[in-house]
């Protein structure tokens, strides 16, 4: 067992699960989506991006790309949230944008986890 693999696997899957936790719930109901979850989703997603750097194989490059996609979507979601809150725009449309952005990030995270599982299964060790 390789501690590095445990840690990176942990963060890849945690990024997906937290992201799902935030995304799950009615898209137009702010009460069902915790801001803390969004924050943690972004932090974990950033950490898993860093962990993916340094693998120069083809698969490593795709994994890094999915992670970058998730980061960008989550950062966009956070920015939208901050802007709407400080400009006091309480708007269903803006909130729906936040949730759907995190939904996009979720898809990227799912892709990344699937690739990661595929690589693990392929590995002979």
């Amino acid at each position: 067992m390789n501690l590095d693999k445990v840690i990176s696997g942990f963060f890849f899957i945690l990024a997906m699960t937290i992201n799902f936790g935030f995304f799950y719930g009615d898209i137009d109901n702010p009460e069902l989506h915790s801001v803390y979850e969004l924050f943690m989703a972004l932090v974990v997603s950033l950490i898993s991006t860093i962990l993916k750097i340094g693998d120069k194989t083809q698969l490593g490059a795709v994994l890094l790309a999915t992670s970058l996609v998730a980061d960008i979507q989550l950062i966009a979601a956070v920015t939208v949230w901050t802007v709407t809150e400080y400009l006091s725009i309480v708007d269903v449309e803006a909130f729906a944008a936040i949730i759907s952005l995190s939904g996009g990030a979720l898809l990227a995270n799912i892709t990344s986890v699937i690739l990661y599982i595929g690589e693990t299964l392929k590995s002979k060790r």
């Binding site: 932090v43 950033l46 950490i47 860093i50 962990l51 750097i53 340094g54």
Partner: peptide, 10 residues
């Protein structure tokens, strides 16, 4: 920069 970036994020 891997480790320093991790440290900063955490």
């Amino acid at each position: 920069l891997r480790t320093p970036l991790l440290v900063i994020i955490v």
